[in-house]
């Protein structure tokens, strides 16, 4: 500690509290709105103190959904969860396998494979929307979980992280396992995987959030309500005239959409931070 005066130690606390309150303010407004009736919100300004309709609004949002939508939050949360888990676990599994091959084997197309995967870093969905859409529709995967998940599953980031990590593992371990008569598959399963738990957890946090928050892709390929993810549902509820929007339901759904990824970040904060900052290396 360089400065010791009391004032100097106190000021950072003030700044941080101000920042926390400003950053959390939108959420407070949303929460407040989700506990009032539509009429109360429309009679601007809406009250900033939460009202008594919490249970009614949330049960309506979860079980029925907004009238003009035809999908309940529970269905959409389920779809979002399937998509997020599918994308994150898919990415982790195929990246682990690819990184294992690239680090522990010597094969002809090794660097070709590595660079092909690397290049995908430069091709986010946003820049190849129409053709990817066409591929999915040719494969008959519009309005399906496979269509939602598969195009998102490639991850240069995860392959990199696992490759980086595998390279720090002493090769003598692979050699020893071979001498003991273990096959490469057994080595992967019984030695490598247990050692890789921490990076896997870190990757999971990041990719779960990535998957949960996908928007453009589901927007393109889900046209049937039963496949709406929660974000698409919110978008559809809001696409109407202001008077028809049931703000209290929309806001309850927004808060529900926000809770799962926020929980993952808060509960797994340590893995999350290491997963994020390790990427840079």
């Amino acid at each position: 500690m360089t400065e010791h005066s009391r004032m100097r130690r106190f000021i950072p606390n003030i700044w941080l509290w101000i920042a926390i309150l400003i950053i959390a303010f939108p959420i407070w407004i949303v929460f407040s709105a989700s506990t009032h009736t539509s009429a109360e919100i429309l009679a601007a300004p809406m009250p900033l103190i939460p009202g008594p309709h919490f249970v009614k609004n949330y049960s309506e949002a979860i079980l029925e959904g907004s009238k003009n939508l035809g999908a309940s939050a529970i269905t959409m949360l389920k779809n979002s969860m399937i998509m997020a888990l599918g994308i994150s676990s898919g990415k982790i599994v195929i990246s682990l396998l690819a990184a294992f091959a690239i680090v522990f084997f010597n094969f002809k197309l090794r660097s070709f494979c590595f660079w092909s995967i690397f290049v995908t870093l430069m091709l986010p969905v946003e820049v190849r929307i129409m053709p990817t859409y066409k591929v999915i529709s040719d494969l008959g995967m519009l309005n399906s979980y496979a269509g939602l998940i598969l195009p998102m599953v490639v991850s240069a980031t995860a392959v990199f992280l696992f490759r980086q990590y595998f390279m720090t593992i002493p090769r003598e371990m692979a050699e020893a396992s071979q001498i003991d008569g273990a096959t490469p598959t057994q080595f992967f399963w019984h030695v490598l995987l247990p050692m890789t738990r921490t990076p896997i957890a870190a990757m999971f946090v990041i990719q779960f959030i990535y998957g949960w928050n996908q928007y453009l892709w589901p927007l393109l390929i889900t046209t049937r309500q039963e496949y709406y993810t929660i974000l698409i549902g919110i978008n559809r509820m809001l696409s109407g005239a202001d008077v028809q929007i049931e703000w209290q339901i929309v806001m309850a759904t927004t808060l529900l959409a926000l809770i799962p990824p926020a929980l993952v970040v808060i509960v797994m904060q340590k893995q999350f931070i290491s997963g994020m900052t390790d990427r840079e290396k």
Binding site: I94, A98, F105, F107, S116, T120, T132, V154, A174, E175
Partner: peptide, 27 residues
Amino acid sequence: YEFKSKALPYLLVLPQMVIVFIFFFWP
């Protein structure tokens, strides 16, 4: 030290490569 296997590494990178080609390079 590297594992000696002809087919296994290709099998391991196959899923990733299939997706890379169908959903990235092709589009």
